[in-house]
């Protein structure tokens, strides 16, 4: 047997079970990533001490850091297991499920709250309904280029995981949904629902729950300018607040 990599995984068998740490040893291969290590355990579910175990449960989909499904805490930092390269990680490698979302099993968490918050802020562009609404207004190429980085958000939850104000004591929706409001409000068709989105982030759990710790922008794997988005929406919500009060 050649070189092996030590892997420690924080596991729990069901949402109510208390977590435990399991040690694995994975044969080293060049360009190995964390997902490939988990796939190896799937094929050969044996602990470092030789004892058989259930395969580690995890989620993955795109394997190219665009879907966010394999987000977990690797060596203490939230990131995607597919783009976490073993050569660049300190050993032994530790894997933990995200702490801000309910754990279903092992590394598999329920990030539904992220999706619910996108629904709350109408994180979409309205398109034709029962009849054709015709072509929408055009978007300037410059605006398209500006908006592209914001559109790279994959709702992975890293920003929420690192945010001190996103926790079980608070309703805060987290940075991702607020940044999506900025994206869709900048779209010529999306801006038709601009005020609805601003009202949504001025509600409970909205933008005013941000405390400017700015961890989100540090951990975002897509390098989205989340704190700029939040400050920009801060400005728009203040304008909306004053306008709402004066027109009431």
């Amino acid at each position: 047997m050649g070189e092996t990599i030590k892997l420690r995984v924080k596991r729990q068998d069901n949402p109510e079970a208390s977590p435990r740490w399991d040690d694995f040893e994975i044969p080293y291969r060049k360009n190995l990533n964390v997902i490939a290590m988990l796939m190896h355990i799937q094929k050969n579910p044996v602990l470092a001490n030789g004892q058989k175990t259930a395969p580690v449960v995890y989620e993955c989909n795109c394997l190219e850091e665009v879907c966010g499904a394999c987000t977990m805490i690797i060596n203490g930092k939230p990131q995607q297991a597919c783009s976490a390269l073993v050569d660049q990680l300190q050993k032994p490698i530790t894997l933990e499920p995200l702490t801000k979302f309910p754990v279903l099993r092992d590394l598999h968490v329920d990030r539904n709250k992220m999706f619910e918050n996108l629904k709350k802020v109408k994180g979409w562009i309205d398109i034709d309904g029962t009849y054709d609404l015709g072509p929408g207004p055009r978007m300037a190429p410059k605006t398209q280029e500006w908006a592209y980085p914001l559109s790279r958000c994959m709702t992975c939850g890293c920003c929420a995981e690192a945010c001190p104000n996103y926790n079980e004591k608070s309703d805060f929706m987290g940075p991702a949904a607020i940044s999506q409001v900025r994206l869709f409000n900048a779209h010529p068709t999306g801006s038709m629902q601009k005020d609805d989105r601003l009202d949504a982030i001025m509600d409970k759990g909205g933008i005013s729950d941000c405390g400017n710790a700015q961890n989100c922008v540090q951990v975002c794997p897509k390098e989205i300018p989340l704190t700029t988005s939040i400050a920009d929406m801060g400005k728009d919500t203040v304008k909306r607040w004053i306008s709402r009060a004066l027109r009431a």
């Binding site: 203490g76 690192a162 001190p164 104000n165 926790n167 004591k169 608070s170 729950d209 405390g211 400017n212 710790a213 700015q214 961890n215 540090q218 951990v219």
Partner: peptide, 22 residues
């Protein structure tokens, strides 16, 4: 109420602004 609502994590995320937040 705001102080109570935060779960400070400066040890795990020891970024400068996070320390300022704390």
């Amino acid at each position: 109420w705001i102080v109570y609502g935060a779960k400070n994590n400066t040890l795990r995320y020891s970024y400068f602004k996070n320390w300022m937040f704390y």
